[in-house]
């Protein structure tokens, strides 16, 4: 850890933010692609994607409540 800046914590924030902020956004977008496909496989894939997003949100809430 630098005296002025906790680089390790910053790195963790950046990685977690990218995974949750850009990764889950991408997964949600894939869900919309699946829904628009109009096929069963597409809808099933969309369901899985939405479950991943919901799990991410629940994890976020859990983290917040643990503070």
């Amino acid at each position: 850890m630098n005296d002025w800046l906790d680089l390790a914590a910053l790195g963790r924030v950046l990685v977690a933010s990218l995974v949750a902020g850009a990764g889950l956004v991408a997964v949600f977008s894939l869900a919309l692609v699946g829904l628009s496909a109009g096929k069963v496989i597409g809808r099933a894939g969309a369901g899985v994607c939405l479950l991943v997003v919901v799990a991410g949100v629940v994890l976020g809430l859990h983290v917040m409540l643990q503070k």
């Binding site: 906790d6 914590a9 924030v13 933010s17 956004v25 976020g60 983290v63």
Partner: peptide
């Protein structure tokens, strides 16, 4: 959607990792 998701993710992450 992307902006709000980014905000939520950065706020939650920074709070969790003590930054």
């Amino acid at each position: 959607f992307a902006a709000e998701s980014s905000s939520a993710a950065v706020i939650f992450s920074s709070s969790h990792f003590g930054f």
